[in-house]
């Protein structure tokens, strides 16, 4: 009887519901309010869209060479950003280059997040011997500097886009696994996981419904900060001749081939670097903002 009375009286004084929506919704709104992050998001979106629609918006053929008009300076008639050492349109090649560079930044991180996340969550949830077995191996790889490891693996596997994708993925698995393991260990010791165990649920069910939802945020945030590093390392591999092969348009490769022309056409030579810089800085700042967005509680 009085439970009903309390329920009625509870209603008006109850904490007014703030319409905060779901977790990702809140995080997105936080990012929207951060002006720097918003600018970065717009820059990235512009780069991504122009890379995707490069065949339709690019003013010229990216592979059409001409010795007659090589290394034209920017703002030349018909060539807005000039031409490269083989007379190809710079603007076109920068647009096309975004396709390779962005994919090489994002794809290995996604693959590594899946593999490294699975390893880390498994190690963190089950603990003890399973944890020890997984994390020992991960830590051995983690001990190598990432650039060195990528170069070594790409060297062993041979050059080419697919091989550099594999080597980059392998490079990013250890750090992601380590982050996943540490956040999973934290979540695993929370009372709500204990409470889920107390209902009689299996480990698989608890991982899927309780653990993953709570570790995805930190893992994704961390992984997003690796995209900029992936772009730089993949450009580096191309620069060293271990990644994309000519005549493919790739920012790292373009930086390499235009290097010799730096005294003749400095602006042209710097342009691919500017693109790498813009993309990686934007990814970095966006992931910083994402990190603080994920921290918001209540």
């Amino acid at each position: 009887m009085s439970a009903a009375a309390e329920r009625i009286s509870l209603a008006p004084a109850a904490v007014k519901r703030r319409r905060t929506g779901g977790f990702w919704h809140r995080a997105a709104r936080h990012v929207m309010r951060d002006k720097v992050a918003l600018v970065c998001a717009i820059v990235l979106l512009a780069i991504a869209l122009s890379a995707i629609f490069a065949p339709w918006i690019a003013p010229a053929d990216p592979y059409k060479t001409s010795m007659l008009r090589c290394l034209l300076p920017p703002l030349s008639p018909k060539y807005l950003l000039g031409t490269d050492e083989l007379g190809r349109d710079m603007l076109t090649r920068l647009l096309y280059g975004g396709r390779v560079s962005l994919s090489m930044g994002i794809a290995p991180v996604i693959l590594a997040t899946i593999v490294g996340g699975a390893l880390g969550v498994t190690a963190g949830y089950f603990g003890r011997h399973i944890n020890m077995a997984i994390m020992r191996v991960v830590n051995v790889f983690y001990a190598f500097p990432s650039v060195l490891l990528a170069v070594a693996m790409a060297g062993v596997l041979g050059s080419g886009i697919v091989n550099s994708l594999i080597s980059l993925t392998l490079v990013f698995i250890p750090p992601i696994a380590r982050v996943a393991e540490s956040v999973t260990t934290q979540v695993r010791n929370q009372d709500y996981v204990e409470a889920a165990r107390a209902t009689g649920a299996s480990a698989g069910r608890i991982i899927v419904q309780h653990v993953l939802a709570n570790v995805m945020g930190p893992i994704v945030t961390y992984a997003s900060s690796l995209v900029s590093i992936a772009i730089i390392i993949s450009s580096g591999l191309s620069f060293l001749g271990l990644g994309a092969a000519p005549p493919l348009a790739d920012w790292g490769l373009m930086l390499n081939t235009l290097r010799q022309a730096i005294y003749v056409a400095p602006v042209n030579a710097v342009l691919p670097g500017v693109m790498i810089f813009a993309a990686s800085v934007s990814f970095n700042l966006l992931s910083d903002s994402l990190r603080s967005a994920m921290d918001v509680r209540a």
């Binding site: 977790f23 929370q190 009372d191 709500y192 204990e194 409470a195 889920a196 107390a198 209902t199 009689g200 649920a201 299996s202 069910r205 419904q209 309780h210 939802a213 709570n214 509680r297």
Partner: peptide, 29 residues
Amino acid sequence: MQMVFQDSYASLNPRHTATEEIVFGLRVH
């Protein structure tokens, strides 16, 4: 036999609504 913990915040999954939290245990059975 069920248990209620001390820390009301820590013992609820922050990503689950009240209904989802209760449904989980029922689905298990």
